[in-house]
């Protein structure tokens, strides 16, 4: 899933302080799961805004809504009226949803309430961890299922750097495992250690983020 964290309240408040009519729009998918922008978070943010407005003597109307996904146009239909009504939409979706909302309603100011972080998994309740960097050409098979791009702080493809100490990454030894230690351990477990001897060729980064805005077209699926 795409993970996100809510922006600090002050930053959000600054972005929307001139909006007299504000819609706070949650998203029911990834950001609900990672507890950043689901219905509960919407309610909490709305409460905070109302309380802050009252404290500052500002008058503003706030509406709350949460839709299934902000990355599909049709889901916005349910809240089209609210969006039209609002001076600004405070999107509690990831960057994709927040942008797409603005595309669906051109001329409407849509501002993000979240900072989108990474493609991650739930390690345990309340803890999410990065596992994929969206490079566009998956190399997991060569590394025993541990991604060197997402899990090595330097995205090294041909072995660890000198900052690998006791299995930890020097970037943050308390929190981060060395990705290459993980790769080594897993390959050993799988009995494939010898394969790590193969030299990885230069990676074509254009398949992912570096090749300009991505686009997938499935001819068979298009109408």
């Amino acid at each position: 899933m795409i993970t996100a964290e809510r922006k600090p309240f002050g930053e959000i408040a600054d972005m929307v302080q001139d909006a007299k009519k504000l819609l706070i729009l949650g998203c029911g998918s990834c950001v609900t799961v990672c507890m950043a922008g689901g219905e509960k978070e919407v309610a909490m943010l709305a409460s905070a805004m109302r309380l802050a407005n009252r404290k500052a003597g500002r008058k503003a109307d706030i509406r709350e809504a949460t839709i299934e996904r902000q990355c599909d146009r049709e889901w916005f239909d349910k809240v089209a009226e609210d969006i039209e009504w609002a001076d600004a939409v405070l999107s509690m979706a990831c960057g994709v949803g927040a942008q797409f909302c603005g595309e669906a309603f051109e001329g409407k100011r849509v501002v993000p309430a979240l900072n989108t972080k990474f493609y991650g998994a739930t390690e345990r309740q309340g803890v999410w961890v990065e596992r994929c960097a969206g490079c566009g050409k998956c190399v997991l098979a060569d590394f025993g299922g541990v991604c060197p791009i997402a899990r090595c702080s330097k995205s090294l493809l041909n072995g660890p750097c000198g900052g690998s100490q006791d299995g930890k990454c020097e970037v943050d030894p308390d929190r981060l495992d060395c990705g290459w230690q993980l790769i080594h351990d897993r390959m050993k477990l799988l009995g494939l250690l010898d394969r790590l001897e193969a030299v990885q060729p230069l990676k074509d980064w254009s398949a992912g983020g570096d090749g300009g805005p991505g686009r997938i077209v499935r001819e068979d699926a298009t109408l």
Binding site: V33, M35, K40
Partner: peptide, 8 residues
């Protein structure tokens, strides 16, 4: 669970 569910 009611208190925890992020989706209400």
């Amino acid at each position: 669970c009611v208190g925890e569910c992020p989706a209400r």
